[in-house]
Design a protein around this nucleic acid. Structure first.
Length: 422
RNA sequence: GCGAGCAUAGCCAAGAGGCCUAAGGCGCCUGUCUGUGGCACAGGAGAUCACGGGUUCGAAUCCCGUUGCUCGCCCCA
């Protein structure tokens, strides 16, 4: 065993798995562009209070999962525990309310939570997310959901389901929670120990308990969508009609609640069909009260986060076609010390012209250099020996067709630089 | 925070107390082929058997502890 290993719950991403990331990132950026979302990058760490205020004091993220540390100046900082609060902080800090609303933003960044790692769960993971801030209109809810759905579709995930729900707002949620509590109190004796605690601390979460007896109770529990106030009801109905209009299928799941305190009204998740824990690949919702929590003026917002590791995992499971990273176009093989100098020079000229070229391991016989070319998957090998150097030529061997031509070196460089680089 | 399983080379892995100076495969390197790849054949390099302690005449193998990994619960992306 090596002395040092990557810290628990973190992972090196080796070249072989980069293609999934490049693929997802490229599609995410393209979908964001088509929907008019601009990229935002926030710092990797923030004032610890930001997440306490934003995500909610009673949440697991804040209570036991944050990486908190004091820096040398005595400031209490937190590694980014979540994507939305920093974006909202930036919105307030830079007065983004002065532009046309909503402000449409997306991000792609690492997120840190101290958890026990398991399949699809890490201490450092990466999220693509979007936030549309400053517009309460239900069409924005539909837009954000459509964006998420489009991304899943574009990267090639087929068997996925979109779940939606509305959990009301400050007007109607207290009443709903009271109804929920009185319903569950009648059966308190049948609840699992965890749920007995939830009854007081976080009644909404009673609904998504996985214990069979609690599940059964949850089926019959009062539904939040049946307790909405008039405004929330209208909003919810419109979201549903817009989703229907753009053909995004969704299943209303009255047990869908989310673990972050800031959600209001619309909440949604996307899950793949394959069973398993940690399966949610996208989760989000509206957070109309968050800005006030962070000290800003009341400003509505909605967004989602999506875990890149989980997307990559699902792409691999589904054997979705993901293009390989391009190999360098040329490998330069040299024979002898004099040709080596010429090879170094040729590699330099090709690279300067924007063409991909690598020099073969020079200690090897030509055969070994050819093997290396095969293993690397280059298009062609450029062979330089004493004859070529003397004549000012280069032997160009096309690896796919096994054809080989000897060309004047200058002509070859000119032609190679002229075609599209790779 | 709770529970379960696993730990032998870069990767996969045989191994059930002495025949282990640790099989085999992939990958890597070399040669067969003095300047030509994919195939084949031959050879080579690469392992304090996770770490520490114990039992035993003898431990990769049995026991204990530690660490790490994996999976599940909780929670979340």
């Amino acid at each position: 065993m090596p002395t040092f290993q990557a810290p628990r719950g973190t992972a090196d991403r080796l070249p072989a798995e980069q293609k999934y990331w490049r693929y997802i990132e490229a599609h995410a950026a393209d979908v964001a562009r088509r929907f008019g979302y601009g990229r935002i990058d926030s710092p990797m760490f923030e004032d610890a209070g930001l997440f306490v205020r934003g995500v909610g004091e009673g949440t697991d993220i804040v209570e036991k999962e944050m990486y908190v540390f004091e820096d040398r100046g005595g400031d209490l900082l937190t590694l980014r525990a979540e994507g939305t609060a920093p974006v909202c902080r930036a919105y307030l800090q830079h007065g983004l309310h002065n532009g046309p609303q909503p402000v449409r933003l997306y991000y792609l960044c690492p997120v840190f939570r101290y958890e026990r790692p398991q399949a699809g769960r890490f201490r450092q993971h990466h999220q693509f997310g979007v936030e549309a801030i400053g517009d309460p209109d239900p069409s924005v809810d539909a837009e954000v959901i459509e964006l998420a759905w489009t991304l899943m579709h574009d990267i090639g995930l087929q068997d996925i389901t979109l779940f939606t729900n509305s959990i009301g707002d400050a007007n109607c949620r207290p009443e709903y929670i009271a109804a929920l509590q009185s319903y569950y109190e009648k059966s308190a004796g049948h609840l699992c120990p965890d749920c007995r605690g939830r009854l007081e601390r976080n009644p909404l979460r009673l609904l998504d308990c996985k214990v069979a007896t609690c599940r059964a109770l949850g089926e019959e529990a009062p539904k939040s969508v049946e307790c909405l106030c008039a405004d929330c009801q209208t909003h919810w109905d419109r979201v549903q009609s817009y989703l229907a209009a753009i053909g995004v299928p969704n299943r209303v799941d009255h047990r869908l609640v989310r673990g972050l305190d800031y959600y209001t009204r619309t909440v949604f998740e996307i899950q793949p069909a394959v069973e398993g824990a940690q399966s949610t690949i996208c989760g989000g919702g509206r957070y109309d009260a968050l800005m006030e929590q962070l000290g800003g003026r009341p400003t509505p917002g909605i967004g989602f986060g999506s875990g890149i590791e989980r997307l990559a995992l699902n792409l691999q499971r589904a054997a979705a076609p993901v293009p390989d990273e391009p190999s360098p176009r040329y490998l330069i093989a040299t024979i002898g010390a004099g040709a080596r100098v010429a090879g170094v020079g040729l590699a330099h000229r090709l690279r300067a012209a924007g063409v991909g070229a690598i020099l073969a391991n020079g200690g090897r016989a030509l055969r070994g250099q050819m093997r290396q070319a095969s293993a690397l998957g280059v298009d062609a090998v450029l062979i330089l020996g004493d004859d070529e150097v003397r004549d000012g030529t280069v032997a160009v061997r096309n690896m796919a067709s096994s054809s080989q031509d000897v060309l004047p070196l200058e002509q070859f460089v000119r032609d190679a630089a002229g075609v599209s680089p790779s």
